[in-house]
Computed example of a mutant assay.
Amino acid sequence: MNRRFLLGAMAATVFAPAAFAQDMPVFFQTDGAVMAGYDAVSYFTEDTPRLGLPEFSVKWKGAEWHFASAENRDAFEMNPRAYAPQFGGYCAYAMAMGELVSTDPKLWTVIDGRLYLTHSPGIEQVWNTDTAEYIRMAEAHWPTALYEQ
Score class of each variant (00 low, 15 high):
Ala92Val: 05
Thr109Leu: 07
Val126Ser: 08
Ile123Leu: 10
Phe87Cys: 09
Ile111Gln: 15
Ala94Asn: 14
Arg136Gln: 12
Ile135Leu: 01
Thr118Trp: 01
His119Pro: 00
Val126Glu: 15
Leu115Trp: 05
Gly88Val: 09
Glu99Ile: 10
Thr131Val: 06
Gln125Glu: 14
Tyr134Asn: 10
Gly122Phe: 00
Thr118Gly: 08
Leu100His: 02
Tyr116Asn: 10
Leu115Arg: 01
Glu124Arg: 12
Cys91Thr: 07
Ala140Glu: 11
Tyr93Ser: 00
Tyr116Trp: 04
Val110Gly: 11
Phe87Pro: 08
Tyr93Asp: 03
Tyr93Gly: 00
Thr131Arg: 14
Gly113Thr: 09
Thr129Leu: 07
Ala84Ile: 03
Gly88Met: 10
Ile123Phe: 01
Met95Ile: 12
Val101Ser: 14
Asp104Gly: 12
Ala92Gln: 01
Trp108Ile: 01
Cys91Gly: 10
Thr118His: 00
Ile123Asp: 05
Ala132Asn: 03
Met95His: 05
Ile135Tyr: 05
Asp130Asn: 14
Gln125Trp: 10
Asp130Leu: 02
Met137His: 08
Thr103Ile: 08
Glu99Ser: 12
Gly89Val: 08
Ala84Val: 04
Arg114Gln: 11
Thr118Pro: 09
Met95Trp: 07
Val126Pro: 06
Gln125Pro: 00
Ala92Lys: 10
Leu117Asp: 04
Phe87Tyr: 15
Ala138Pro: 03
Ala96Met: 04
Gly113Met: 13
Ala82Thr: 05
Ser120Gln: 02
Ala92Thr: 00
Ala132Glu: 10
Ala92Glu: 02
Met137Leu: 14
Glu124Thr: 06
Arg136Gly: 04
Arg136Ser: 12
Ile135Cys: 02
Val101Ala: 13
Leu107Lys: 05
Arg136Pro: 05
His141Ala: 09
Gly89Ala: 09
Gly98Met: 02
Ile135Ala: 03
Pro121Leu: 04
Thr103Asn: 09
Met137Arg: 15
Gly88Thr: 08
Lys106Ser: 14
Ala138Val: 04
Trp127His: 12
Leu117Trp: 01
Ser102Pro: 09
Pro105Thr: 00
Met137Val: 06
Asn128Tyr: 00
Trp127Asn: 12
Glu133Gly: 06
Thr103Trp: 01
Asp104His: 11
Leu107Trp: 12
Gly113His: 12
Glu124Gly: 08
Val101Glu: 11
Thr131Lys: 14
Ile111Gly: 09
Glu139Ala: 07
Glu99Gly: 09
Ala140Ser: 12
Glu99Leu: 11
Trp108Asn: 08
Ala138Phe: 00
Leu100Asn: 02
Ile111Ala: 11
Met137Ser: 13
Glu99Asn: 13
Gly122Trp: 00
Val101Gly: 11
Tyr134His: 10
Tyr83Asn: 02
Gly98Asn: 01
Glu133Thr: 15
Ala96Thr: 07
Pro80Ile: 09
Met137Thr: 06
Ala138His: 01
Gly98Val: 04
